[in-house]
Design a protein around this nucleic acid. Structure first.
Lengths: 214, 214, 214, 214
DNA sequence: GATGAATGAGCCTTCATTCAT
DNA sequence: TATGAATGAAGGCTCATTCAT
């Protein structure tokens, strides 16, 4: 199950490598995203990240002051990417249902194109909950996320789809739906996610169940 | 320099090992549940568990052959408890909506009464996704879970609420909804969960949005 | 598994390397003095020194061949400064007691004006004792120190204060007194040093204790 | 300079060794004393200590929670031993000079019999000054040392050798003398210490210099 | 059944040093 | 001259696991 010879990384010589293109930092970020997505904060070792870039752990510390800092840098990137993608997806639409539809589709696309992004987001909640040193730094960043969702709900109220009184309920429901989709992301068959998105879309239109009037 | 001996962990027998010999075994299981719920599989150390019971790690190994086995034993207990509670909650009702309503309420109750159960379930997906040695043993157990949900959907079809064709969509949506609720469990304000449950209930009745006819 | 290659550090040329080329070299020396004084040889990192000058560690190696060489260069400067100050202080006097008095006062002044000098000297004994690669280079330099103290004792003999036979005893006592004062230097209340100097002065005059005739 | 083959410590097997005499803790303390005496706090590695006892670093942590704790435990032992020896040496005498004489002799004996004790004490001041985490814990313990010295001075006042007004001066002088002797301890020829002790004794009697009346 | 002692592997991090640019 | 990037060795510590007693 493990006969791959682990290509002895031919020992580089000491000093600055000839092919230093100044992109190492970015490459580390990407490798870190993959590792954190696969293994979570505690489970991803600095060695794993370094090896994936073809570096020693020491070199990592030239670019990021600590594992924590590296995680936070990845988070910043991922969070921004997610928000951008969601906002861009929702922008063309005016109605709440349509905006949410678009976001749900975007999640599916994200899962396919950038599984490391959704993988990272899947672990995020648990990791942050477990490592107070991450929480401190991340909680403020969540504000932006909340604002986006709030904007969504606001649009629903403006359009008359939602009533004022439901604001909080809708906000929390939407959040939970999205978090739930991220949570189902990894290791599961992609079709589950697809089905769930379909289901949610129809639920939003009251079209999943033939509810008897009651 | 890298004698890849890594002895293929000889496949121990699946499921609950012959452990709960008396009270200590049960006390260990409870402590382990707390620890795994708080810190996840990798993050919870055998020492943490042992200390919580007032034992040494050595003693743990009298009752469970490995950390993995301990986790699996906890899983078995938790999964069974969850299924029992859900089935008991759903039983009195006949319609799909009502059954699902009852289950959603049960989740809320579970979060309140047995936070370690929901905490454990929160990490479960991620942990299993990350540790193949857990996956092997747990995937089969998920069948039971699926069966319960399938029963739910079947009831909906029988009652006429659902159509045959939607079977898979509904099944996966329901699963995703519940996993999502577990994922939102810890560290979040309990009100979020409450709101999300309210939101889902109304979604199921097509009563969250005033959808314009289209 | 233990390829004891540890290349015998090829004996670089002793003493002050060809470094202080211009101002940067001097600034490095000063920064290094501060760092070694604060943290000792092992505790001071090249990074600390470089940062204090506003350089990278790489740049340090343009001026000094190694941390060891840097230490030795600082030592040379500090030792010379100390000897100069002591000799200048003792010069105006002819009697041994007065010369020693003057030196004791000079130590107090040095502690106040140049705490990094006395700080460095405080660690010197311990550092040299612990790092054989420093010892080699420094022991010879101690000769000069001994010569100064010998001169002191000689003056005492000439003036009739000391007898020939006590030469060694006095030399070692004086050395120990001074080393002791350096050792008490840092982190202690300055008043302790002041008191000790007062005490030593009076001891030298037989005026600290009312010794009963015996 | 290092041809000793470093006797490959024949790999013990896992569990509890047969010859566990319950004295490992004490053996670790002794090894740690040696290492800290030789290399100081920062310079002594946990590996050095462990290897000297024939253990792995992991095993060390079974007995002491951290390197710091280990250091503090050594300190406690050393400090107590020193105080006991000094008090026992001074006890038979009533006059200050005689008590101090006895202590000076005791230092010489200690240097000879227990060089690790004096070696440890030599580094103590510097180590504590540099590692705040040690300072916290050690400063309170110094009280006892001060009390002993104070008792000494008190005896001098009672006996009429010292006057009230000199109390502080004498206390600080005595402290500095002793610290100085410890500082001269290692790597120096023992005769230096011997001479210094002789010198101090005669200084105390006003018998080192033939001071002209002035 | 439980303790206490130990191992060996791994983790995060620091550091002196090297060298292409 | 100086920077920036990298290495390799080491350091303190944790952890799952083992096993004599």
């Amino acid at each position: 199950m493990d006969a791959r010879t682990k290509v002895e990384p031919e020992p580089r010589r000491r000093g600055r490598p000839a092919e230093s293109d100044g992109l190492t930092g970015e490459r580390i970020l990407i490798a870190a995203r993959v590792c954190f997505a696969e293994s979570g904060y505690a489970g991803a070792s600095t060695h794993m990240v370094a090896a994936r870039v073809g570096l020693t752990t020491g070199a990592l510390y030239h670019h990021f002051a600590s594992k924590r800092d590296l995680y936070l840098a990845v988070f910043a990137e991922v969070e921004q990417l997610m928000i951008e993608r969601f906002e861009k997806a929702a922008a063309p639409h005016t109605r709440f249902v349509d905006k949410l539809d678009a976001i749900l589709d975007e999640i599916l696309r994200l899962s396919r194109d950038e599984p490391t992004v959704t993988g990272f987001l899947q672990s995020l909640t648990a990791d942050v909950g477990r490592h107070p040193e991450l929480l401190e730094a991340i909680v403020p960043a969540f504000e932006q996320r909340d604002q986006m969702f709030s904007g969504l709900v606001e649009a629903g109220i403006t359009s008359g789809e939602l009533v004022e009184a439901d604001r909080e309920i809708v906000l929390d429901t939407v959040t939970t739906i999205l978090v739930g989709l991220f949570a189902m992301n990894l290791g599961q068959l992609p079709s589950v996610q697809q089905h769930a998105v379909d289901g949610y879309k129809r639920l939003l239109r009251g079209a999943l169940l033939k509810t008897k009037k009651r």
